[in-house]
Design a protein around this nucleic acid. Structure first.
Lengths: 103, 103
DNA sequence: AATATATTTGACAAATAAAGTCAAAATTTA
DNA sequence: TAAATTTTGACTTTATTTGTCAAATATATT
């Protein structure tokens, strides 16, 4: 299953970067990068954005993976997970039509 | 929009409980209950379960609200939120068919 | 209006979780 | 097998969450 981390690893390898190289460019510890790519540590939005830029890859596409990973984490072990997803969809549409996304 | 908190407040009022009463029964501080009902503090699963029992209300239904609130929180300000939801749905179906929900 | 009851607010402390650092171990590549 | 790369784990620091409490506010009752 494709995650933001697995996608980032794929991109890094395609570009031929080592973790060390990436680490020094974006100033994030190698160990953390390694863990983020493998999903052992939560990927931060900040790192995601830096890597999208470094790899010249569409940030939105990565964000979709990133957010769907987080959503999945909330519901993966839940019996009612799918239903919760549907309700969340209804709610987000409601928010959009009612412009209640202030601040 | 209905949230787990607003539903719990509604149920409490229907049953005629005060926050104090609920507080002493389930042993959670009044201030926290007040905040949880209004969404100012994250509702915990533990409290949700205790209240479902106290109010004799379907836990699964409350869980759907609870989880959808959490999902919404992840994506509410995101341009690609809806797309992320759809991808999350695909992923959860994938996990279900591949029984990768081990542990 | 005054009192009692109920709820909300905010400041603070305690507990928990997340994020960062580093070196040794393990793995992969040349 | 040596060099380069990646992974692991222990540890520290920082940030977030959770709990506690009393004062402030709001709502009900008499």
């Amino acid at each position: 299953m494709e995650t933001a981390g697995s996608k980032l690893r794929e991109l890094r390898q395609e570009k031929g970067f080592s973790l060390q190289e990436v680490s020094s460019v974006i100033d994030v510890d190698i160990a953390i990068l390694s863990k983020m790519e493998r999903g052992e540590r939560k990927l931060s939005r900040e790192v995601l954005e830096k890597l999208a830029e470094l790899y010249k890859y569409d940030l939105k596409e990565l964000l979709v993976l990133f957010l769907s990973d987080r959503i999945l984490y909330e519901i993966k072990d839940e019996e009612v997970g799918e239903e919760a997803l549907k309700v969340a969809e209804e709610k987000i549409r409601y928010l959009k039509t009612h412009q209640e996304n202030r601040n």
